[in-house]
Simulated assay, not measured.
Amino acid sequence: ASDVYKRQILSAVAESYLQGVSTRRVNKVMAALGVEGISASSVSRITKELDEKVSEFLSKPIEHEIPYLFIDATYLKVRDGLHYENKALFIVAGVRDDGYREILGVKLADSEDSLFWQDLFEDLKERGLRGVKLIVSDGHKGIQKAVRESFIGSSWQMCHVHLMRQALKKVPKKKQKEVADMIKEALVDRQKYNDLIRELDKMGYKGAADTLERFQYDVMNYIQFPKDHWRRIRTTNIMERTNKEVKRRSKVVGAFPNDESVLRLVVSILIDINEEWITGNKYLIMEQ
């Protein structure tokens, strides 16, 4: 069988296995894929192979310089002792110096303080991460501090989409479109942005004004880079499809029995996406 096909089978077995599905049901999945009879020992062997793939992917050397680093979270239900909780799964991607995208890391958060981020960044640096000029994410607690300490001389960019979402939460429904348009217009010019903070305050939207003010030094860092990169480096939209795919395929599972099972499934998905990225089209044209 081709490698891709094998991987799909592995992934199907793993997904069934993740759900605590009986060997009988796994056999059904296999039969549907045209692979007859698989024993419990095969399932555990496949799971072990999958775990090896996961750890290989999560420790692979980062060979290119990564000028642009993107971090985004997706939330999954994971069992913790006797109860289930929503855990944040952070996916880290980058645009390399040759203009291709690459998925660089994944980490399940138990907390989001700056120590969590520092660990994540240290791990990436040990694997060879270098040349980072801009880190784009939403305003997770602790991330700015960790960026300042881990990437001296780099800038942090607050994702415009997340900024907008956060600000609009504090505006009445019927006014949201109007305020969204105002924010969009202001996000290209520092003076306009500062004027808008004052204007929102006057309009009585103090919460929205506070949000804009809190990130005022971090919303326009993208402007120092080539103009034809702007659209793609001021948000974490690069991750949208990745997160959608993770969500779509983990819906089948519902709630995960443990952290390992999350990584097993998510990393299988990311290995596929990464393959498409590095063999597909360039994401940005980098200046030589």
Rank of each mutant, 00 (worst) to 15 (best):
Y100E: 10
E102H: 01
S114F: 14
G139E: 11
H140T: 08
G94E: 03
K192W: 07
G142F: 07
L168Q: 02
V188M: 08
D181I: 02
A180L: 06
Q166Y: 12
Q191N: 13
K145T: 15
R190E: 10
I183D: 01
D119K: 11
K202R: 14
G142K: 00
L124F: 10
D98G: 07
D98I: 04
L163N: 01
E122N: 12
G153L: 11
C159V: 06
V171Q: 01
E112I: 05
K133T: 02
W117K: 10
D97L: 07
D195M: 10
G131Q: 03
E199N: 04
S154M: 07
K175L: 07
K170C: 05
L108W: 02
G139D: 10
I135F: 00
E126W: 04
Q144C: 09
K175M: 13
L129P: 00
I91D: 03
E149Y: 04
Q157F: 09
K184I: 12
R148L: 15
E122D: 12
E122S: 13
K173R: 08
I91Y: 02
V132C: 09
R101T: 06
N194M: 15
E126P: 00
K125M: 13
A186K: 04
R198N: 15
L120A: 09
G139F: 01
R165H: 10
I103G: 04
F116W: 11
M182C: 02
L129A: 02
K169D: 14
C159A: 09
I197T: 05
G99N: 05
H140V: 12
R190Q: 14
I103Q: 02
G131N: 02
K107M: 14
M158H: 11
A180C: 12
R198Y: 13
L120R: 02
D195H: 09
G99Y: 01
Y193I: 15
I197A: 10
H83R: 15
D119T: 11
K141M: 12
K87N: 07
A180I: 07
K202Q: 14
H83T: 09
S155Y: 08
V106I: 13
M164Y: 01
G105L: 13
E149N: 12
Q144K: 11
N86A: 14
D110L: 09
D181R: 08
V147M: 06
Y84V: 11
Q166D: 15
S150N: 04
E126K: 04
H140D: 09
E126D: 09
G153C: 08
M182G: 01
S137A: 15
E178D: 14
V188D: 05
G105A: 14
F90D: 00
L168C: 07
V161L: 12
D113G: 05
K141P: 00
S114D: 13
A146E: 05
P172S: 03
E85T: 11
N194P: 00
E199C: 00
R96N: 13
C159Y: 02
G105K: 02
D181E: 14
M182P: 08
